[in-house]
Nucleic acid binder design. Structure first.
Lengths: 121, 121
DNA sequence: TCAATATTTCAAGAAGTATTGAAATGAAAT
DNA sequence: ATTTCATTTCAATACTTCTTGAAATATTGA
């Protein structure tokens, strides 16, 4: 036993923990809906109604987990959701599904694709 | 403001919380990989190396969140992952993405589909 | 009925996470 | 230089969730 899926597992768990909080979930979804341009922390604070210091802590959790990226712009910090990382997480969740049955697998893939499409209209 | 996306938000949060635990994440993925036939609690306990009472608590969290289903078979209980619910959760995570930009949206959908495909081979 | 098996329930201590407001940092404007 | 603005850091308290083992429940087989 010398393979290392441990890192991925811990990472996925950290990402899920980051999302597993009502405030952070709102924050993350606000970032997703803002798109790649992202949002300044202050704008976010208004949008999700969370105090600045609290928001800052939550954003740190999301970025540390790899679900958001920060860039500095003058005195503000712009946060953006990392959708590639999000897709990776989803992939990890349903990995090796269905006991290798290709028909079932296709079904799962289809469901996910439909979900994604529905989300993106 | 009289729309009610609150239920969905709380539900999604509960599901993410359920997954946001190293042991439960292993449990859930074991169920995913077992497919719709599911696994008896005892078999799971061996597979993920969690004590029966602890496992039972974790399975209760997953089923209450709607990510797993139980059925009784004699003196054992068979648990199975709910992949439709999982797809719904993913959908919720990336809802309204990209500020409505159709090109970006297509990109996100593609990423999710690719992730799903990669997971299912 | 009795014993064995599979699983859940319970209680309590241990560990981890959230929230708060005040103070600190760092960048821009005056 | 000083002030203002955006954000983060800190420390303390409050809150939730985990884990454990022992006891309870429920089902099957002898």
């Amino acid at each position: 036993m010398s393979d290392r899926p441990e890192l991925a597992e811990a990472q996925a768990c950290a990402q899920l923990s980051a999302l597993a909080h009502e405030g952070r979930l709102r924050i993350f979804r606000a970032l997703v809906s803002a798109g790649p341009k992202g949002l300044a922390a202050g704008v976010l604070a208004d949008k999700v109604e969370i105090s600045p210091s609290n928001l800052s802590a939550h954003l740190a959790v999301l970025t540390t987990a790899g679900l958001a990226q920060v860039t500095k712009a003058g005195r503000q910090r712009i946060y953006a959701a990392d959708l590639a990382a999000t897709a990776e997480l989803v992939s990890f969740l349903v990995a090796d599904c269905c006991g290798g049955d290709p028909d079932l697998c296709r079904d799962v893939t289809a469901k996910l694709a439909v979900s994604a499409l529905r989300a993106c209209n």
